[in-house]
Amino acid sequence: MSLLLDMLSAACLLAGSFLCITGGIGLIRMPDFFARVHAAGVTETLATPLLLFGLMLQMDWSLDLLKVVMIMIFVLATNPTATHATAKAALHGGLKPLVSEDDPNDTGEPSSKP
């Protein structure tokens, strides 16, 4: 049983770390602001609960477990809201999303970096 829990927890932690790294790469490599917000927001929203869930599997039934559950709820509520607010603020500030209507031969140069 404990081996199963350990394996599950390790899988969760690994997946969470992987998503964190992809989110970080996306934050740097994505071409425009909205794509970056997407990379950061979407991956973090899944990565943080995965990491926390992996940690929860390592814990005993105690008050600390409850605290981690509350942190998870808090992150799940605030993270998408923060992403939403950032994107909406950028749109309100007059930043247009990068729309691909150019030729498909475009080599992916960062044409409209904010």
Partner: peptide
Amino acid sequence: AIGDQIVLRVVVKLLIPL
């Protein structure tokens, strides 16, 4: 100053008591 932000309002209303 930020206009009527429905998503922010709902989430913040939930968060402030917490």
